[in-house]
Computed example of a mutant assay.
Amino acid sequence: MTAPAARLAVRNVTVRFAGLTALDDVSFTVEPGTVHALIGPNGAGKSTCFNVLSGVYRAASGSVEYGGRELTGMAPHAITGLGIARTFQNIVLTAGTVAENLMLGRHRLTRAGFAATALGLPSAVREQRRHRARAAEIADFLGLGPYFDRPVGPLPYGVRKRVEIARALCTEPGLLLLDEPVAGMNPTERLAMADTVAAIREALGISILLVEHDMGMVMRLADAVTVLDFGRRIADGTPEAVQQDPAVVRAYLGQEEPA
C-alpha cells in the first residue's frame, strides 16, 4: 500500500566538500500531494540536494524533516523505510528481467525471512506471489506490461527509464524524488514521460520532487518551483512567478536585470 504523502521541510541546509560550499543555507518546502520542481543551471547544487534528502550525503548544518521526522543522519535504507524513493539521472538497474528489478523495490516490504524464502515455506511463497502481482500492476500502470518478463539490458533507453521509476514506485513511497526523468529522451518520449509523471501524482496522490532541465515540462507539471544557482536558493514560488524573476533570467541566460 502506498505510504501517505507527508510534508518535506528543508531548512537552512549547507553542504561542504573540502572547503567548497555545494549548498549554502538552502530552504524550501514540498507540500503533500504536490509536484515541486528543483531547477537551476548545471552545477547549481540540485544533485547534491537530492543526495542529502536520500541519505547519501550528510549536511554540515541545517535540517530535513519528512512528516515531522528528522532525516539528517539517517541511512539511505532508513529514509526509504519512511516512504521516500528516488530515481537517478543515470539509469541504475541490475541485470535480469524487468520483473526482477521491480521485485528489488518490494524488498523493504517483505516480511518473510531469508530462511523461509530459501526453504520455499508456504507463507513466504504466498508473500512473493503478492509482491509479484503488485509489481505487475505497477508495470502495467507505467506501460511496461509487455516487457515484464524480458531482460532489461536490451530494452530501449526510454523503457529502461520507466523501469527505474517503476522500481522506485514498488517501494510504495509517499514522496518520489525524480532526477531528470526525461534526460536523453526524444520529444515524443518526453511528452509521454510528462504524462506519466502527471498520472503518478493523480492516481497515487503522492508528492513528487522533480529535478529537470526541460522547462516546458517543469512549467506544465509543477505546482511550485525552487531555483538554485551556485548552491544558493535564488527564487521560490509558482512556475509563473519564477519564470519572470529577473534573478532566474540572469542565472539561465546571463542577462542583466532590466531597468
Rank of each mutant, 00 (worst) to 15 (best):
G174L: 00
V152M: 01
P173G: 12
E202N: 02
V152Q: 01
T188L: 09
R134E: 14
A198S: 15
R167G: 06
L155V: 08
G145R: 15
D179M: 12
V163H: 02
E189C: 06
V197M: 06
P156E: 03
L176I: 12
A168K: 14
N186H: 10
R132T: 10
G184P: 07
A139T: 08
R167F: 06
F148Q: 07
E137R: 15
T196G: 05
A166V: 05
P173C: 12
C170M: 10
A183E: 07
A194T: 13
V163S: 01
R134G: 01
E137N: 07
R201P: 01
I138S: 04
R162K: 15
L176N: 09
L155T: 05
L169W: 03
P156H: 02
D179C: 09
G143M: 09
C170H: 05
A192E: 14
A203W: 02
I200W: 00
L142I: 12
M185Y: 03
L142A: 09
T188V: 12
I138F: 05
R190Y: 01
V197W: 00
V182M: 04
F141P: 03
L142Y: 12
R201D: 00
R126P: 00
M193Y: 04
R167C: 06
A166G: 04
A183N: 05
A203N: 06
R129F: 04
L191M: 08
D140R: 15
V152E: 03
A136T: 07
T188Q: 15
A183S: 15
V197F: 02
P146C: 02
A168L: 07
A133K: 09
E189Y: 14
R167Y: 06
P173R: 07
P156A: 11
E137F: 07
D195K: 11
D149M: 05
V125T: 11
A198Y: 02
T188K: 14
V182A: 13
E137D: 15
L191S: 10
L155W: 00
A166W: 02
R126L: 10
L176A: 11
R190W: 03
A136D: 07
L176C: 09
Q128Y: 14
A168Y: 11
E164P: 10
G158W: 03
E189F: 13
H131I: 06
A198C: 01
E202S: 05
R167T: 09
F141T: 05
T196Y: 00
D149G: 09
R126G: 12
R190M: 12
M185P: 04
G158Q: 02
R132D: 11
I200K: 03
A136R: 14
V159S: 02
L142P: 11
A133E: 14
L177I: 13
E202M: 00
G143I: 10
Y157P: 01
L144H: 02
G145F: 04
G145I: 10
A139P: 04
L178W: 13
